[in-house]
Design a protein around this nucleic acid. Structure first.
Lengths: 245, 245
DNA sequence: AATTAAACTGTCACTATCGACAGTTACATG
DNA sequence: CATGTAACTGTCGATAGTGACAGTTTAATT
């Protein structure tokens, strides 16, 4: 059993921002728990697959090479289950339920990687998906006991680390968007436009002239560097410039 | 300190499906931890607000009445932070950061509810948001110690309960998603429209007639239940139906 | 006192969009 | 073979959006 005090300390460190770099977080996790490997993935679903936004792991270049060159991502049920669901995905369970993914686990055994682990789905902003996978070099029985005891620690640590990662990228992105600041009226007309209102309707709602609505909308388009109201609204929603709630 | 064995037992019960009903989960949580109240919310962001998909709580009818009649949901920073973010939201921190939400906390104190608590964002399928809020009748100092020890339990229990809720409604909810499923072409024209392209441009890009672009767009508008391309794109971006460019 | 930013308004001409009309073709599923 | 679904197309008329022209007013900052 792992030292409970060390676990709580780890959670404090991750929560209060001491682990915004994946390497430090991974190292801290491996030091505190009996973890073999970690993998953090942030992706965006596309119609024809997944766009990987962030990927950090400890499996090494050789394992990554094999995973990619053999096209194992195409049959990986853990990816699909964890990114498409909410419940922690047990590797062994996925292996049993999807016999077609055997090549993946065989490849793992071939290069000496553990096949016991769990993938934790993480809450993400709209349109994003994320997971943290954790594996350990243990027998199935050992892993079951270990997992029962520490899944809660993994889940919270994963959530907090993920939050740090997102906030860090928000800082970096904030500089780019310094001139993207919209005025109150610009935000209002965009919001109503996103709600399907026409210029005339927005003018009536805001108690101003239709021309003025067009004026704000034109300014918003110019600031967002787009050519249509539709594109402006798409950008505004993506950058959370107009309220979702 | 709470009995660790009881905590692990609770997590087992929630994980293995023993707590698909909110009342049983809430009761089990209150029995295991020193929790005053719980609130589970599942919602969908809309252009003109928030559509509540599921709401279960232990605050009682009187508190709900006050919350709604005074319009406190409009100033509630916890809702916004937890549904819009990833990090656990500490009630006291939200109160300090958003002085305009004082009426909310004053109302809570008025009817004898605790103002110490935390709201946990939960991972959700595309276009959905969810949170579990937990409060305790403790002094700030007690709460800090208690939270440090049990946040991991709350987080994992919340995730597992949320997963049960989603899986239970998977059958019923499948009907809603079927209507909202866009075809490949509908997704394509929406994507290009969100990129600022006109019908003529999209037609040229896809190598089809302008009329056909309009056909797909009309179908998309109908499925999304909106009145303009702009609103359709806003919805599609929010529901992650089209890829980010 | 000068400057700046935001909020506001009008008109003209052109293009884009949208709803309603009425179809064809291809492919899979029962 | 019927049924359904997706992909496709044409035309008309009404409404909405877009850019370029040329301004006023108010409030805060320098």
């Amino acid at each position: 059993m792992t030292n409970q005090q060390a676990v709580l300390d780890l959670l404090d460190i991750v929560e209060y921002g001491g682990c915004a770099e994946p390497e430090r977080f991974f190292a801290l996790m491996r030091r505190t728990f009996n973890i073999a490997h970690l993998l953090y993935l942030e992706a965006e679903p596309l119609s024809d697959g997944l766009k990987v936004c962030r990927l950090h792991h400890t499996f090494g270049a050789y394992a990554a090479e094999i995973y990619l060159s053999r096209g194992l991502y195409r049959i990986d049920p853990i990816l699909k289950l964890a990114l498409g669901g909410v419940r922690p995905v047990e590797w062994a369970t996925a292996r049993r339920r999807f016999p077609e993914c055997e090549p993946l686990f065989e490849a793992a055994e071939e290069i000496g990687l553990s096949t016991e682990g769990v993938a934790l789905p993480l809450p993400s902003p709209a349109g994003r998906l994320a997971l943290l996978a954790i594996s350990a070099n243990m027998s199935p029985a050992e892993w079951a006991t270990y997992r029962r005891c520490h899944l809660r620690d993994f889940q919270l640590a994963a959530n907090l680390f993920h939050a740090s990662m997102l906030e860090h990228s928000a800082m970096a992105g904030a500089l780019d968007e310094r001139d993207l600041r919209l005025t109150g009226r610009e935000t209002e007309v965009l919001t109503w436009s996103a709600a399907g209102k026409s210029y005339w309707e927005i003018a009536t709602i805001l108690g101003i002239s239709e021309r003025t609505v067009r004026f704000f909308m034109t300014n918003a388009r110019r600031k967002l560097n787009v050519v249509s109201n539709t594109q402006a609204v798409a950008q505004a929603v993506r950058h959370a410039l107009i309220p979702t709630i």
